[in-house]
Simulated scan of single mutants.
Amino acid sequence: MKNYFTKYKPFLLFLGKFLLAYLLLTFVYQFYLSRFDSAAYEVDTITKMVSYQTQELLHFFNANASIIPHPEEASFKIIYNGKYLARIIEGCNAVSVIILFVAFVVAFTGKLRHTILFALFGSMLIYMLNVWRIALLSYLLYYYPAQQRLLHDVFFPLCIYGVVFILWIIWVNKFSLYARKTV
């Protein structure tokens, strides 16, 4: 058994750090969400920020768009050219993707400063791309409503997770302690 732990120590350390970071961040996020009353249709602050920033981005591109609170659930309605297209719920705010990203960065340890900066800037990039994702999705749903499943369930998740994957590759190869040092 000791030989097993010695042989697989790097993997087990990675797995332990990943699970610990993921569970800790998820617990903190769930605690944050518990402060909002979804039964009273109260939307959390991060989802509100994403919703209104999406509206502002659409306005920047001269779109006739508005974000209004949903009267029957904890979400915001996206109104584009007078048409109700979609809703922004808590799951649309990218926090779960950011938690996954940060847990991976923490698991593949790097220098503390690099880890904090990469996790911070990577999280901001994911957040900003998510706002762009929702705005572009709104535009595309208006003009191509029949493609909703493809756009929402396939194309845009592929884009956001693709960016996360690229960030992970950069982290592992350039900044983590496992990165090869070429001389």
Rank of each mutant, 00 (worst) to 15 (best):
K2S: 12
K2G: 14
N3R: 09
Y4D: 15
F5Q: 06
T6V: 13
Y8I: 03
K9L: 15
K9Q: 14
F11Q: 07
F11L: 14
L12N: 03
L13Q: 11
L15E: 06
G16N: 09
G16P: 04
L19Y: 05
L20F: 15
A21I: 02
A21G: 05
L23E: 10
L24T: 13
L24M: 12
Y29Q: 05
Q30A: 09
Q30C: 00
F31D: 13
F31W: 11
Y32T: 00
Y32D: 04
Y32P: 02
R35G: 07
F36I: 01
F36Y: 15
D37I: 00
A39M: 10
A40C: 01
Y41N: 15
E42C: 00
D44E: 15
I46W: 14
M49R: 05
M49I: 14
V50M: 08
Y52L: 10
Y52S: 08
T54H: 12
T54G: 12
E56W: 10
L57N: 09
L58K: 07
F61K: 00
A65H: 09
I68R: 07
I68G: 01
P69H: 03
P69D: 07
P71N: 04
F76T: 00
Y80V: 01
G82R: 08
G82E: 13
G82C: 05
K83T: 11
L85R: 02
L85S: 07
A86R: 04
I89S: 11
E90H: 03
G91N: 07
C92G: 09
C92P: 11
C92R: 08
N93I: 02
A94W: 07
A94H: 10
V95W: 12
I99E: 13
L100M: 08
F101K: 05
A103G: 11
F104E: 01
F104R: 00
F104P: 00
V105T: 04
V106F: 07
V106K: 01
A107V: 04
L112N: 06
R113K: 12
H114G: 01
T115K: 01
L117P: 02
L117Y: 04
L120Y: 12
S123K: 06
M124G: 09
L125I: 07
L125M: 10
L125C: 05
I126T: 05
I126R: 02
Y127R: 03
V131G: 06
W132V: 08
R133L: 04
A135N: 11
A135M: 07
L136P: 04
L136K: 00
L141Q: 13
Y142D: 09
Y142W: 12
P145N: 10
A146P: 01
Q148N: 09
L150G: 04
L151W: 10
L151E: 10
H152S: 06
D153G: 01
V154Y: 14
F155Q: 02
F156Q: 04
I160S: 06
Y161I: 06
Y161P: 04
Y161W: 15
V163T: 10
V164N: 05
V164P: 06
W168H: 06
I169W: 11
I170Q: 06
I170W: 14
W171F: 05
V172E: 12
N173M: 08
K174N: 13
K174L: 13
K174F: 14
K174S: 11
S176I: 03
S176D: 09
S176P: 07
L177N: 13
Y178M: 06
